[in-house]
């Protein structure tokens, strides 16, 4: 029960309390660019959630088994190369390069999957699907997982379940934010916005008010932790 409580806390934290867009400012580019219509916004949210989960799973596997100090596979290869040595091999300098490789491959994978099974959706996405590679949110999820895996002792090490929950619900939080923003922008189309603020200016101000609203979730994790205990 304790483990499930931790998973619920991570999920609620990633989606609402520490919302990726409105608190950590990652994923702003699609948030500003794709949030004009509700259906494209929801589609983008789902695509980002899918890619974030795939990329997080792959990057957790690479970090846990190869990159972190004392990783199993690297230690085994090192023991073959120089047996009897008790040096701890630490490949974590390659972290960022491996993560960006993993993200590019995940986006390729998802693109092939969507093109095969949802061809109409693929057509409507156009150029935005490959652009998810430069989405800060995905690399940010990988970095958050790296914080809890690389250099963490066995007690606070994050398994694949916590990593996937963080990534998936981070994507869900991104989807919530972008869908709310799309709904508001559709209403804004009928308003008389001053000329200098049209486009990105008014969107950022609305995002600021949204961030203010989401600040109301602070402290929910403490109360939730007390409730689940």
């Amino acid at each position: 029960m304790e483990h499930v409580a931790q998973l619920i806390l991570i999920a609620v934290g990633a989606a609402l309390i520490n919302n990726f867009v409105l608190k950590y400012f990652v994923g702003i580019c699609p948030f500003l660019g794709v949030s004009r219509r509700l259906d494209t916004a929801f589609g983008m949210g789902c695509a980002v959630t899918f890619v974030i989960s795939v990329a997080a799973a792959l990057s957790w596997t690479c970090t846990y088994f190869i990159l972190r100090p004392g990783a199993p596979l690297t230690a085994w290869v090192w023991s073959l190369v120089s047996p009897g040595s008790d040096a701890v091999v630490d490949l974590s300098i390659l972290n960022y390069i491996v993560y960006i490789f993993v993200i590019a491959s995940s986006v390729q994978l998802v693109e092939m999957y969507v093109r095969k099974f949802f061809p109409s959706l693929y057509k409507s996405f156009g150029v935005f699907l490959p652009l998810i590679t430069t989405n800060c949110a995905i690399l940010f999820a990988c970095l958050e997982i790296m914080k809890h895996v690389s250099g963490a002792g066995p007690a606070e090490m994050w398994g694949l379940d916590k990593a996937l929950i963080l990534a998936f619900f981070g994507g869900v939080g991104f989807t919530i934010a972008i869908v709310i923003m799309a709904g508001i922008r559709e209403e804004l189309d009928a308003c008389d916005v001053p000329a200098p603020l049209r486009g990105a200016g008014i969107t950022l101000i609305v995002a600021g008010i949204l961030a203010l609203a989401f600040m109301g979730f602070t402290g929910v994790d403490k109360s939730l932790a007390d409730l689940l205990r």
């Binding site: 200098p196 200016g201 008014i202 950022l204 101000i205 995002a207 008010i209 961030a211 600040m215």
Partner: peptide, 24 residues
């Protein structure tokens, strides 16, 4: 509030508007 996320969004939005206005 200026040091927190909402302040960042609102400042950037208003400064973008100012930059556009100066530009035009």
């Amino acid at each position: 509030l200026m040091l927190l996320p909402p302040g960042a969004f609102i400042t950037l939005g208003l400064l973008l508007g100012a930059a556009n206005w100066i530009g035009s």
